[in-house]
């Protein structure tokens, strides 16, 4: 009796944990080691100002900016080699979620935290800054005003300390 009771608890716990632990990757993506999904992994409190979301042209604009940033990074002679080994399908999805969540677009962030996701990548400050330059370019192409760009970058800047390890 006691054994089956314990087994029941384990099954129950497994069932509860399953939604958070199981779907760490989507169809078309390579499997990743299990981790606990949480918006807290995004590493910052989202911007609540609707004017910022509007300046980024909502979820569609954010998706264009996230994809364009990755395209520019892949074309970058210094960043390309750092990005290319990774699953681009997953990176495009999680970066889009990350931006959308932080800009108050109402998305959930299902990716890993900044420390874990950048472990052993060898990112230096110069690389972090180059990505900022590409993100600025993507935002400029989307027509996001400079002041609104800075509202977003102010959230991303402190992540430097987790990304550059």
């Amino acid at each position: 009796m006691r054994t089956s009771h314990l087994a029941g608890i384990i099954l129950f716990l497994a069932a509860v944990a399953a939604p958070a632990m199981a779907q760490t990757h989507m169809p078309g993506e390579e499997p990743v080691a299990p981790y606990v999904q949480s918006d807290a992994n995004a590493g910052a409190t989202p911007i609540a100002d609707p004017a910022v979301l509007a300046a980024f042209h909502g979820r569609d604009g954010i998706a264009r900016i996230a994809n364009r940033t990755i395209d520019l990074a892949l074309d970058d002679e210094e960043l390309g080699p750092i990005f290319r080994p990774f699953d681009m399908v997953r990176l495009r999805r999680t970066l889009n979620e990350h931006f959308c969540y932080l800009l108050g677009g109402g998305c959930s962030y299902s990716g890993r935290d900044m420390t874990t996701s950048h472990a052993d990548m060898g990112v230096e400050t110069r690389h972090f800054n180059r990505l900022i330059v590409h993100l600025r370019m993507a935002m400029r192409e989307e027509g996001v005003p400079f002041r609104m760009q800075n509202r977003f970058l102010a959230l991303l800047a402190p992540m430097h300390d987790e990304v550059v390890q």
């Binding site: 910052a44 102010a154 959230l155 800047a157 402190p158 430097h160 300390d161």
Partner: peptide
């Protein structure tokens, strides 16, 4: 301190 990256402080 860091003038640029310390945006959360």
């Amino acid at each position: 301190g860091d003038a640029l990256y310390g945006q959360d402080t």
